[in-house]
Design a binder for these strands. Structure first.
Lengths: 121, 121
DNA sequence: AGTATAGTTCATAAGTTCGGAACTTGTCAA
DNA sequence: TTGACAAGTTCCGAACTTATGAACTATACT
């Protein structure tokens, strides 16, 4: 099993970070890891969206987040502990993650509202 | 020739905006359109990077920026006038574009510095 | 040992992107 | 008007990326 790759933030180009977060599953995963207390293992993350994500797909998404320097992964026994590297990224690209996470929330709220509107029927 | 598509910002999901800017050519194009005075036509944009971008490629990139709601394109004679839709996007996703553009500058500066270091030899 | 659990890797089908060649549209000169 | 040119766009093949099921590894617990 290959060792986990955790780049120096200084070595991560902006486009890699944006690409990592330019996917609805990955922003949702990152949001969860940033905002919920404690490290998250993959099983806890399988249901970030309304439908469960296949394990192999989740594994790839987590690799992309890790290799973009957004998330730190540590193997503990059979599990993977994922924690955010928010502060490091923020030091290099100030305000970037906050803006993206805020935008993500804006979108979630908008979606919720339009769902409510439909439920009236 | 197909008419240009300019979505309502409300209809543009975050991931579309991030995807549009998750490309070194496209951030550079957007940066140029936002920060340089006046509308930019494609010829003025061919050289945003150190090497010229093929016209067909540029055309695709501009379409992606337009369809992400980031840029407005208007045909004027044989040319296309491209202007930014910064304010509209900022109203929906506050701070997002500023953070990305700032991050882009951070990266440009870092690259410049490492180039200088090499030139010492 | 065997079994279970958590996650990874591999293979491949489906989708996306880049860029050259050919095309469209508008402008200007003869 | 016709011809030539300039600015972009479209088309399409080669190269690349992504999603996921099946097979695998690695650890823990009987």
């Amino acid at each position: 099993m290959k060792p986990l790759v955790h780049p120096d933030i200084e070595d991560v180009p902006l486009e890699v970070i944006l690409h990592a977060l330019a996917d609805p599953i990955r922003v949702a995963l990152f949001y969860e890891i940033v905002y919920q207390e404690g490290p998250k293992n993959c099983t806890m993350l399988v249901n970030v969206l309304d439908h469960p994500i296949p394990k192999s797909t989740l594994s790839q998404h987590m690799r992309i987040l890790r290799e973009a320097g957004l998330v730190r992964g540590e193997r503990h026994g059979t599990q993977m502990h994922n924690t955010s590297r928010y502060d490091e990224v923020d030091a290099r690209y100030p305000g970037l993650l906050l803006a993206i996470i805020t935008a993500h929330s804006v979108q979630i709220e908008a979606k919720k509202k339009s769902m409510d509107a439909i439920e009236v029927f």
